[in-house]
Structures are given as structure tokens and as C-alpha cells.
Amino acid sequence: MPKFLLIYRDNLDTPQPSPEEIQQFLGMWEGWFKKFPENIVDPGDGLLPTGRVLKAGGVVADGPYVEAKEMIGGFSVVSAESYEQAVEIAKECPIAIVGGAIEIREFAGFV
């Protein structure tokens, strides 16, 4: 079955979650992982808000690469029959539910 990378793009305008919200999110993630145990092949990881960007010519800039008002905050890998099914799975991911964007990219399968 094809694999898809879900790239979580956090909205930078969203304030940091409160302790109470963190507990709610945790429950939502648990629900998502439980709902798609066959499809979520790698829960992935979160990413720290720090970073470096290496630009052409060896120029190193501090901070992650930020596009508009979004920053990549984490990722997971799912397997799905098609983009349609991958989107259906992503729609129920807590990131999508709380208003973040998810970029869905199919693995090329080169390796």
C-alpha cells in the first residue's frame, strides 16, 4: 500500500495551548491513533521551534524555514490506498481539527 507523509503545519497565530488544552489534545491524538492502527505506520515526531537554514553558497541562517504564517511542527507517516483515503485519515488528525494545515505527500517509492 502506498505511504504518505503528513507534514503538520502549525499556524503561528495560534497561541500556545493551555495545560488544559494539552490534556484535551492528548486525548484527541490517542483517539486518532486508535482509530487508524493499520494505517498509521509511523507516528513520527514533533519538531522543536528552533532550526537552521543552510542556503546556497553555504550561508547559514538561524531559525526554521517559515513560510507565511506556518511552521512545520511535526510529521507522521500513514499508509493508504490513495490520496483520497490519506486525506480522509488526515481530516481526523487533531492538527486538522484544531485548525492547523496538513500537507500530504506520497512517498515516491524509489527505495
Binding site: Q16, P17, P19, I22, W29, E30, P43, D45, G46
Partner: peptide, 15 residues
């Protein structure tokens, strides 16, 4: 403390 909680969210949700 906020950092610790964000890490907990990422880690505990997955593992």
C-alpha cells in the same frame, strides 16, 4: 514548564 508540556504532548500522544 510550557516547553515540557509541549514535549509531553508530542511524545505521549505517540508512545
Amino acid at each position: 514548564v510550557q516547553t515540557a508540556m509541549s514535549r509531553a504532548l508530542s511524545n505521549w500522544s505517540r508512545y
